[in-house]
Design a protein around this nucleic acid. Structure first.
Lengths: 150, 150
DNA sequence: AATCTCTATATAGATGGCCTATACTTCTTC
DNA sequence: GAAGAAGTATAGGCCATCTATATAGAGATT
């Protein structure tokens, strides 16, 4: 073994952390990171209760209320009643929201592309090979949605 | 070719973006992301002018002034005069800052480790293989420091 | 060497995202 | 049907960031 699992994780931690900052630094400032992530979540899961959404995104419920209000005002999401429970607000992505999300992703991908382009053939191949692993890593840290919290 | 370079970049973009959010979500709230990144930068480059630091971190100079003031109050960095130019403030990491940085990195690595542990042997190997590429990607997006802006 | 202009940092004031505490509405259970 | 639980909204505060501007020193031109 060339390096222990711990070393890999430590190096991964620092490197990904650095990439995080790069990614955030260059991001467009039209909406907050959490707003973008929220829309991304909605895109993956479909409509969610406001409280669940707050839990998934790791922010307090009142914060999600105001975030959703903002996105709603911008026409990117909509509030829907839950026929089964009238206390509930279901938050759903609108068509405009989906469109916005797509554009934003393209932007991010383009910025990264500019960097990836500067890598060697070998490095690109290594990244491509690691993509499934990165994707699963993401899923692990970002549970799809638990109906049951148990 | 199984997938084009553009596909790789797009997928990388989305996946890394998701990881970003995961990373940020769980982070300790003792200091801001930018503060942590600033200390990390100082650790890599050594003492820097306040203005350069602001440029590297992608925030406005007055924001860096207040960020540094906070870190200084916490004993993590110090302001030093530049003997060659008395307008200048050089910001340097203190020993406490270095220590803090190390602890923080360990924390981040541990959180990621918990996720990485849940991956298959194969996935871990792929990540390990991609580490150099990820590292270079980070460096590309995070230039060491340009004395010359040209 | 007096002054003019440019550069480096600091201060003031505003904005936005997040928080806790709490009020309000609807559901559930006895 | 009354009491407590659950889902959302409102109120008020904190902190990181921004723009505009003030202050101090450097460099150049007379």
């Amino acid at each position: 073994m060339a390096q222990s699992a711990v070393d890999v994780q430590r190096a991964l931690g620092e490197t990904l952390y650095g990439l995080v900052v790069v990614a955030i630094r260059g991001r467009s400032r039209d909406i907050s990171l959490t707003s973008a992530s929220t829309m991304s979540t909605l895109s993956r899961t479909g409509p969610l209760r406001l409280t669940d959404l707050a839990a998934v995104e790791g922010i307090a419920q009142p914060s999600m209320t105001s975030l959703v209000t903002g996105l709603e005002r911008a026409g990117l999401v909509e509030r829907r009643p839950d026929p089964a429970d009238r206390r509930v607000v279901l938050v759903a992505l609108t068509d405009a929201g989906r469109e916005h999300l797509r554009t934003r992703r393209q932007h991010g991908a383009e910025r990264l592309a500019a960097l990836v382009d500067q890598l060697s053939e070998e490095d690109r191949a290594a990244l491509a090979a690691a993509l499934p692993a990165l994707h699963r890593l993401h899923e692990l840290g970002n549970p799809p949605t638990r109906e049951e919290t148990a």
